[in-house]
Amino acid sequence: MYSDKVMDHFEHPRNVGVIEDADGVGTVGNPVCGDVMKMYLKIDDNEVITDVKFKTFGCASAIATSSMATEMIKGKTVDEALELTNKAVAEALDGLPPVKMHCSVLAEEAVKAAIEDYRDKKLKEN
């Protein structure tokens, strides 16, 4: 049902955890629907994402897409990370079953929510 890549990221998720002094934190999803993703970003002065961590409640594909998304944005600039699409995440995992595509959408939204939080904070600082 799942590709080897999905299973690999599910069983050995990269970047699980929290960043205590994160510059941006985004939470998306709803426990009622069965998936919640929380993404933490550390961003330097050049707007480069230097660290990413996540926590996810959900099925194997929710965990795998979170893990893959963190790998794909680490080291990227905020603007580059905003270009991350759910399709790109799904493709990087060698595809997802059609009913699980919403998990990749959630991963994209989690990244965007964390970046939005970062920008909001910056606005308030200035």
Binding site: M37, K38, F57
Partner: peptide, 8 residues
């Protein structure tokens, strides 16, 4: 659970 934001 260590991975779950709800547990945290």
């Amino acid at each position: 659970r260590a991975m779950s934001p709800l547990y945290e």
